[in-house]
Each structure stands twice: as C-alpha cells, then as structure tokens.
C-alpha cells in the first residue's frame, strides 16, 4: 500500500535568468514500514525533494499524494499527524526547555498540559533523549538535537516521517544509533524518508536512492515480493 507518492515531480531553482532544474520528472513511492534514504552531493536538491515530499514546498509540475490525497490541496492538514518533517537544524525558542519544545506542538493542538507532558516524555524516552528534557536546545550536541527533533515529530504519531540530513555532523559513534532509531520507527509501521550528504548514511535503508542532475535513481517503488509458482501435485 503506497502511503506517499511523488508522481512526475518537477521543480526549478529560481536564481538566475533561466533557473536550474532541481527535480526533473521525479517519481517515488513509499510504503509503511520502510526506510528510503536519498543520497546526493551538495546542491543536488535532496532537501528540496524532502520539502516537496512533505508538502512544505509546491512542485512546479507533477503531484505529491499522501494516502491518495493531493498535498497541494491538503498539505497543511496533513503536516504533523500525517507527515512528520524534521529539518536540518533544531530551532527552539531560547527560553524553552527541550521538554517544552516537544510539548508545544501538542499544546497548539489543544491537548491538555498534563497529557502533552506525558506524551512528550514518552517521545523523548522513545528517541533516547529523555536525559535532555530539562536542557535548553542550544545546550545539545548534534546527535542529541537530532534525537530531540525526532521526538518533536514523533510526538504527533505521524504515518510518514521525513528527515533532512539526520546524520550530518553527527559524531561517528552516534551515527548508527540514529540510523537504528529510524529503522525502529519504520518497524512500527511508519514510512521513513531521509536524506544524506554522506553515502555512509544509506546503510540499513530498505531502499538507497541517489539524486543527481535532478534525477532520482535506484528502486523508486517498493520491490514486489517474488511470485512463486504454485507446484501442482500430480
């Protein structure tokens, strides 16, 4: 079952007189429980691809569908509970603690303070960042800030998690812990789409993809299970 689908998506970068094609007829399907990782060199358009997939940026051409619905019409309804988007840097208000930072999106949705507190604590625990709860976002190291950012997205129980550069700048010893965390999120039935500028970030993905010259390469739709011929008894 396809949860998120990009269909013939095109996007041009609008600096300069003619613009530069960032995404050129890109199609991609994501199903629940899988991790798809997109690798590309600098300025290859991988962050744009993720923003378009999350419904944050509109494609110039083509369609992005979440659960069959066109994100151009429903993008704002879907972001959060449907699609969790984690950007490169964790940007938090200076005065807030990490716990408050994770709670805030729940409070904004009218959830009571007590329930938001409990859910935020669970999300921080889930991402291995419970020990950061009382810290300010600026006190976190890179790996901690990625884990907190993931908690902030996961607290809304999204069905698709889109993560921009989860291992960029993360200490080598912490890197695989974060990739394993994404794997475990997918194992709970969430479709995960991540980008990486380092090819080492592709390890453990169900589908490793490459983006260059606006083209996405690799297996663009989930592999079908092999069809086994039924052996008839004589």
């Amino acid at each position: 079952m396809t949860l998120l689908a990009l269909e013939h998506v095109g996007k041009r970068y609008v600096d300069g007189p003619h613009g530069r094609p960032l995404l050129n007829d890109v199609s991609l399907e994501l199903t629940p429980g899988e991790v798809a990782a997109v690798w590309g060199l600098r300025r290859s358009g991988r962050s744009t691809l993720l923003r378009v997939a999350a419904g944050i940026e509109r494609p110039d051409t083509g369609v992005v569908r979440f659960d069959g619905r066109d994100l151009i019409d429903h993008g704002e309804d879907v972001l959060g509970e449907g699609i969790g988007y984690v950007q490169k840097a964790l940007r938090g208000a200076e005065a807030q603690s990490v716990l408050e930072e994770v709670m805030v999106c729940l409070l904004a949705r009218g959830i009571s303070r007590a329930a938001a507190h409990a859910r935020a604590c669970t999300a921080l625990e889930r991402t291995g960042s419970a020990q950061c709860a009382a810290l300010a976002p600026r006190q976190l190291d890179k790996a901690e800030s990625v884990r907190v950012a993931l908690a902030r997205a996961l607290v809304l129980s999204p069905r698709v998690l889109i993560v921009d550069e989860p291992v960029n700048g993360v200490d080598l010893h912490e890197r695989d812990g974060i990739l394993l965390l994404l794997r475990s999120v997918a194992d709970e039935g969430v479709a995960v789409l991540a980008s990486t500028g380092q090819s080492t970030g592709l390890a453990g993905a169900d589908r490793a993809l490459a983006l260059s010259d606006g083209e996405l390469r690799g297996s663009l739709s989930p592999e079908l299970a092999p069809v086994l011929a039924l052996r008839r008894s004589a």
Partner: peptide, 20 residues
C-alpha cells in the same frame, strides 16, 4: 553506468548498521 550505480545503491542499503 546507471546499472553499476543501482548495484552500488543496493549494496549501500544492504550494508548492516553497527549495533544492528
């Protein structure tokens, strides 16, 4: 080259994570 890249991508994904 496209086929070679696809084979590389498949191998990159199949590489296990440390700790897995």
């Amino acid at each position: 080259l496209d086929r070679y890249e696809k084979a590389c991508l498949q191998e990159a994904g199949e590489t296990p994570l440390n700790g897995a």
